[in-house]
Design a protein around this nucleic acid. Structure first.
Lengths: 335, 335
DNA sequence: ATTCTGTTTTAGATCGTTCTAAATAAGGGA
DNA sequence: TCCCTTATTTAGAACGATCTAAAACAGAAT
């Protein structure tokens, strides 16, 4: 037994004014006289009126709804990001349509269509692995405002992310200061802009510090994947004394794998992560990492989208947060 | 420059048929002749038609949209739950409106109103701490289908959760088998149905096994809160030889706190968590925990809501998932 | 009283869809 | 050929808001 909505018309009736006037009150227009406004507002409260935003959008084209697409809801980096987005959106009285692409471009496409059908005002997208580079322009062609976050495809448009080149630089310099000299990098198989950036950051940092590149190993972006790659890392031509990892999840997995192979992380070999997830505190030894403030990136993305909605012609902007090194026990001082 | 939508009318024009017919095609009605359907479908594809679901809802009252309210987006138990919900919803071609109440009943209320304004078909709610018991009936009064998940207030309605009484039982019996005899329980300050259930499970399990209750200590639901309560636990009248924790986050925090206090978890004292989050693998020692399959609970909740939408008069149902003990190193065999 | 301001209010069309009820087409059988 | 049935299509009124353009109402000045 679906309840019938209280409509503008009914409020108008009860208040003895027209629909249009009530609409003006709802939208807080200054056109309406104070005494009328008060009366109408009282009646709206009494009758528990809730404005139908869908109907409003039909007429004025603003749904106060934005879509957010993430490739993963288990990795807490994405959920912290999401939490930042939701935070700002709620503040602006907007609502978040959430979807998980699971890093599948095909699913991602289906989601975009669905969002389109729901008339979202805009989309925050963290592109799935394997997304066609043209996607962002295709979306623009639909007239759908877009902000990319964390990862990026296509020409530079609105983007919120973190400076991973700098982050990797911080980590490498820290390791060098601690006395390490043969660095390996544990990368991922998934080809994203995030991966390229970290790899090029690694190359640059090595060049700048003149330290030995012990090699790059790739793993699946899972805990187990990283654990399994421990063997490969120990078998590298030049045996590394420190490993920098694509992110904290891999770092944690790697530490477990190393220990299983009889090599104690934080004593026999240093391990450093990226992202500084909460779990970095909980591993043993506690993981040195580079914090990227995921919620902040989320808030930035939301802010960029709000700006774009306010001014569709604004020049594209990129908000990049700076990294911060958090030293813990996994990168001990080398004697 | 907001793009104009392609409408039913335009498709109708191009196909030389009426709006109503095209509408029937969109909705896959069997009423329309095969050759017409084909032609119309071809034209829709060519013109990149996207059905406006908001407009449709206005007429037929189904938005294919559901709201999900969680109290927290950082705890991965909730995000795994969320991921399960999203999964099923996407399958059913529904869209998830996500909001974070941050365990604040006032925010939660605002969110519900917002969802109401957006015309959601129904809501999956994990009630915030301090939610008034009447909330569920108030929501019902709005004619808004509701499923509660993980926590519960008010009379028993549709609910998806886990059997924490049994979970605590599993953990306690396991500890007894390992030879422990003085159990403490690390609980939380936040008063939710989840807390009550675990506490009563603890009491019952103690009664059934006849083991000593070393005491119940409360902590904030954070990593640091748990770490700080380590001192209290060590100072209990009867010094416990094992601690069961409200969840894995607390357990991990507690282990860190214990170690700081010079008491090595997994050697001097056993620690067991609940939920079996991914982080249980990564702590040191690896945490024994009771798995609750959060994604499954999410899928159950989504299923319950789908059922309720299909039949608003259906008798309330409760889907409770069974717990599974996962033994790791933090609950060693006592000599 | 009339005209002229400026402030408030409103009728009616409109957004893109679905629904209802009725119209038209297409086959068969007489 | 004409009527009856069944299959297909359609006109026009919803749904609940917002917009546009114009109307009604003040109060002040003539």
């Amino acid at each position: 037994m679906r309840q019938k909505r209280v409509t503008l018309e009914e409020i108008a009736q009860a208040a003895g004014v027209s629909r249009a006037t009530v609409s003006l009150v709802v939208r807080k227009s200054p056109l309406v006289a104070d005494h009328t406004r008060e009366r109408v507002e009282r009646i709206m409260a009494e009758m528990d009126y809730v404005r139908d935003i869908g109907a409003a959008r039909l007429r004025n084209n603003s749904s106060r709804t934005v879509g957010v697409i993430v490739p993963n809801l288990v990795n807490s980096f994405f959920t912290e990001f999401l939490s930042g987005v939701e935070d700002v959106m709620a503040q602006d009285d907007r609502v978040v349509l959430l979807a998980n692409s699971r890093d599948d471009p095909w699913r991602q496409d289906a989601i975009l269509q669905r969002f389109r059908g729901h008339g979202v005002d805009g989309v925050i997208l963290c592109p799935a692995v394997g997304t066609e580079p043209q996607l962002s322009v295709r979306i623009a062609g639909w007239g759908m405002p877009l902000v990319q976050a964390l990862r990026e495809v296509g020409p530079p448009l609105d983007f919120a992310g973190a400076d991973y080149v700098a982050a990797v630089g911080l980590a490498v310099r820290h390791l060098v200061e601690q006395g390490f000299s043969r660095l390996a990098f544990l990368s991922v198989t998934a080809r994203t802009s995030a991966r390229e950036e970290r790899l090029s950051g690694f190359a640059r940092a090595l060049a700048e510090t003149g330290i030995t590149n012990a090699g790059v190993v790739e793993a699946d972006l899972t805990w187990e994947g990283a654990a399994q790659s421990a063997a490969q890392i120990l078998a590298l031509g030049t045996r590394p004394d420190a490993v920098l990892c694509f992110n904290d999840v891999l770092a944690a997995g790697l530490m477990a794998g190393l220990r299983r192979a009889g090599c104690e992380p934080g004593r026999d070999i240093a391990v450093v992560g990226l992202d500084d997830l909460p779990l970095a505190e909980l591993t043993h030894p506690a993981l040195t990492s580079v914090a990227m403030d995921a919620p902040r990136i989320g808030r930035n993305a939301a802010g960029l989208l709000a700006r774009r909605l306010a001014d569709p012609a604004a020049v594209p902007q990129r908000d990049i947060v700076a990294p911060r090194l958090v030293v813990r026990d996994s990168s001990f001082q080398k004697v």
